[in-house]
Amino acid sequence: MGALHSMAHDYEYLRHTLNAMAHRVQTALHESLQTLRRSDAIGAGQIIRDDPDINALQQDIEDLVARFITQWQPLLRDLRRVLAMLAVASELERIGDYARQVATQVRRAHDDNHPLLMVADLLELGALTEHILSSTIAAFLAEDTAAARAIAALDDQVDERRRAITAAIRQAARTDSSLFDAAIASIGITHILERVADRATNIAERAIYLATAIHESLNE
């Protein structure tokens, strides 16, 4: 506390910390998808162990926001901005959890020795989710409402893909009951990836609220 900086300086520091956290989360998601590709139990374990780092970053952001509000008593856009950052940090923390859940599924599939189904499709869905996440974070940090609104269309694509993949996996499991466990696990991953996309869309909504003070729902 103390040691007066400018409000812009403090805000910049907050933004920097959030950016760092977003980067960590994106990396975790990306790595978890890589372990899925390689069926890499060791890499998956690493991702699971690293998750608490992301949680710590979220707590840092909470502290910074609290200090920022105390010191600057921000109003209007300044207030919305730091409140949105608080919310975004919480969304990112959840996304970090999802990356860990993907890694958990990969490790369990490896340990139980039932290779996951339709990995290529899952990876493709994962890539789309990653794209959504990175563009939503960029839109948020740039406070770009047009880019944020564009996320809604991508989110719809994710839902579509997920439905297609799920249907295909079900089909496969129905014909071969030995694939039952693998099917459950693979469907679980589609679920997780869909949630990531949902969380990313929430971040986009925050970006719009920040800029316009209007709560807009992109998840219709």
Partner: peptide
């Protein structure tokens, strides 16, 4: 101008 004033 209102926004600028209120937010300092």
């Amino acid at each position: 101008r209102t926004e600028d004033y209120i937010s300092g």
